[in-house]
Amino acid sequence: MRERLALSTPGEGAAGKTGSWRVFRPVVDKERCNTCGLCGMYCPDGVISEDLTIDLEFCKGCGVCANECPKKAITMEREER
């Protein structure tokens, strides 16, 4: 078919590797985490998986997860680039 109009196909990385946007990265203290899953629920971009690992390729570093964690198990640490 000719390319008649812009039709975008779903795929990861539509906006690039948004992990590069981060200034601070979420670091999880597994000891404190009680796997309540609120971090994943509130993650605007859905980059926290079911087993609560954070996809740093795409995490924009907003810090909502750290802010909402009831156990304060996530800290935002400066990216070193």
Partner: peptide, 20 residues
């Protein structure tokens, strides 16, 4: 078979659709 219709289309692509 979901696709996005008429999404943001950059200066490197837009003209192709006009030509068509």
């Amino acid at each position: 078979h979901p696709v996005g219709y008429g999404p943001m289309t950059g200066p490197d692509q837009y003209f192709k659709f006009r030509w068509d």
